[in-house]
Amino acid sequence: MDWSKAKRIMIFAFLVVNISLLLIMTSKNIRAKDYITSKEDVIERLEKINVDFKTEIPEKTPNIELLEVEYEEYDTINKKLDIANEFLSSSDLLQIANIDNEKDSIIFEDDKEKFEILKGKKIIYEDKTRNNNSPMEFDPEKVASDFLKEKGFENSDHKMTKLKKNNDIVELNYTKLHINTILEKSYMKVIIKNGKVISFERLWLNVIEEKENNIELRPATDSLLKLLSVEGIRDKTIDKIELCYYFDSNDADIFDFSELKAGDAVPAWKVQFTDGTIKYLYEE
């Protein structure tokens, strides 16, 4: 074998591979620069459809992975009875249980309380006594926190994302956290009246694993330009922009999850408006 000739061929092949990699990286950088929009430009363009800003636009785009997630399920009779027992004081849950085949739910109900497990995934609790005492002063965050601890839901895996007061009713919303980043749409809703929880809902996602993400999330400025083609946001004001994971649920209604068990949550920008409207901007 002519080792000198073979060596030249190997050197040539090595150079070709490195040049190809350099061209790919350069091409990616050029494409990245092509779609980076300035804050001033995005604000100006959204102003044309009367969308205002009441918050700063994030400057950094953290590099986060895909998450494989699954719905928390109560798929056996023992799991259903165990979670119902956390909420209800009845000594015989089977005696007060009713199955609604049309809704695909099981309901435990007596004169004072009602607890429903919908499609084996969403749980709903209601205190039917409603606590109609005179209005009183209380700390809603402490009441909600104590309630969640009592029901066995850890403090470390969720974050309060909304607090709304309406006379003597306070509503608090909590969202799933994964390494300090919220996971949508995974939530708990606590409604309090006169210092007592009168209603609770939970639809939860659990993380199976992190996965390599081959689709890079664009900067917030570029992603916000997608709002130009979104219906129903004219004449609104953006109140908050934050990075999140978003479980698309196949764009289905969030309550139509009877067959959906697991999937990928993608990095996204959560854009919240002052009227409560929320849009999720991500790469498809």
Rank of each mutant, 00 (worst) to 15 (best):
F153Y: 15
I30W: 03
W204Q: 03
E72K: 14
K39Y: 10
Y245R: 01
E44M: 07
N250Y: 12
Y74D: 05
L15Y: 10
S249T: 04
L228W: 05
T161P: 01
D92V: 03
C244S: 11
Y187K: 10
F273H: 11
S229M: 05
G263A: 05
D253P: 00
R45H: 10
I9A: 14
F87G: 00
F255N: 12
A84Q: 09
A262Y: 08
S186G: 09
S91W: 08
T274G: 06
H178S: 08
P267I: 04
Y125G: 09
K151H: 13
D275G: 13
E201V: 07
N85M: 01
L66V: 00
N166Q: 06
R8S: 13
N166F: 05
F138A: 03
L93S: 08
E44K: 14
R8N: 09
N131M: 10
D75N: 15
E201G: 04
C244T: 10
K112W: 02
I106K: 01
T181Y: 11
V16P: 02
K39L: 02
I191Q: 13
S89N: 07
I124G: 01
N166S: 11
I96K: 12
I57L: 07
K48W: 10
D139R: 10
I30A: 05
N250H: 06
I123Y: 07
R31Q: 15
F12G: 14
K176I: 06
T61Q: 06
K122G: 01
N180R: 03
Y174H: 06
E154K: 13
L23N: 08
F138G: 06
Y246N: 05
T221K: 02
P219S: 14
L15F: 15
K149H: 12
P135H: 07
G120E: 13
N131W: 08
Y74S: 06
E242V: 01
N63L: 09
L93H: 10
D157M: 13
A6N: 08
D235V: 07
T76F: 11
A252T: 03
L172S: 01
I107T: 13
S229Q: 12
